[in-house]
Amino acid sequence: MTDPSPGALGESVYDVFARKKRGEPLRHVGYVDAPGDALAKVYAWKTYDEENWFEMCVVPRRAVLPVNRHDGPWGK
């Protein structure tokens, strides 16, 4: 299921991953709707500010390829 409604501003979903400290796993912390990569990074950094993240990245949801199950949010 990808973004069913990109909306009038042409936004799509990006999933946000972050780790708190060195040595910790990168964990899925949330999602933002953004019209492109550059703004997705800004939105993620400003939105998920509940921790002092050591590392954060965003992934366009359409780039996530489910391997063993196709019924979750990353399924197509």
Binding site: P4, G7, V13, Y31, D33, Y48
Partner: peptide, 27 residues
């Protein structure tokens, strides 16, 4: 206020994953 808007976005996102439309719900 910023937190609240982020919380709203999270809940609408979960609704989108269930096939609802944030576009319709908000606008």
């Amino acid at each position: 206020i910023q937190d609240e808007l982020a919380h709203a976005n999270i809940a609408y996102r979960l609704l989108e994953d269930l096939g609802e439309s944030k576009e319709q719900l908000v606008y």
